[in-house]
Design a protein around this nucleic acid. Structure first.
Lengths: 109, 109
DNA sequence: TTATTTAATCGTAATATTGCGATAGAATAA
DNA sequence: TTATTCTATCGCAATATTACGATTAAATAA
């Protein structure tokens, strides 16, 4: 198959998985780290930084944009990508909640 | 292709992506939530809870075990799955660090 | 012993992902 | 205008993922 049975799960579970899935590739982690650490967030600079082809990076950017983690700003011929505050904050909330839902004393085996 | 060029990225980036990728499926989120919220963590109970076949769930458990998030304890004919404290704590650290590496004032566009 | 229960694994099919080169389109420069 | 620059998208190939039924293997029960 290769198709995920999303209908079987809650909205919350699906969204959580979707966000984490977007982070589930080293190139996308590298892109996010670069965008955060640089003043520049121009697409071309990302392409120079990350050892993958321009088309591949464009695709990864698209995926990150799809879940909302980054947003693209067309500035003339260039596109500037940056973190979307709202979704980054959502991701922070989701992660904190998820991580804190377990504590070592819950251990059952 | 479909193959990830891991060699191009840092150990840290690859590990981060690997952990998030494991969380990037609603069934695996549901499994983790179930294991955390129930006293029971027996495989059969997970199969009863989650609307996917036994073999599919077994595969998801295998993936979670691969990155270390859960560990399985064979108890006679049953297997008890639970969170691996060390990896859960790693995930917590990784997430906190990653999330806090960006703050709204970094915005460049 | 033989049956049953439990969970892992195998085999298979369908779909998704990753990656690249080529191309297209839009904005700017010459 | 024409050329150039920049990025998105298309088309393709290779690999990965998801899902299921069937089977296997191991432990326990009858």
């Amino acid at each position: 198959m290769g198709i995920t049975k999303s209908t079987q799960f809650t909205k919350n579970q699906n969204r959580k998985a979707e966000l984490y899935k977007a982070l589930g590739h080293p190139a996308r982690i590298a892109i996010i780290e670069f965008v955060i650490n640089q003043d520049s967030c121009v697409c071309g600079d990302i392409v120079d930084e990350i050892p993958l082809s321009q088309s591949t990076i464009s695709q990864h950017l698209k995926e990150l944009k799809k879940v909302g983690i980054i947003k693209g700003d067309i500035e003339g011929v260039k596109t500037c990508y940056c973190i979307d505050d709202k979704v980054w904050s959502e991701l922070d909330d989701v992660s904190r909640l998820f991580m804190s839902s377990y504590s070592e004393k819950d251990k059952c085996c």
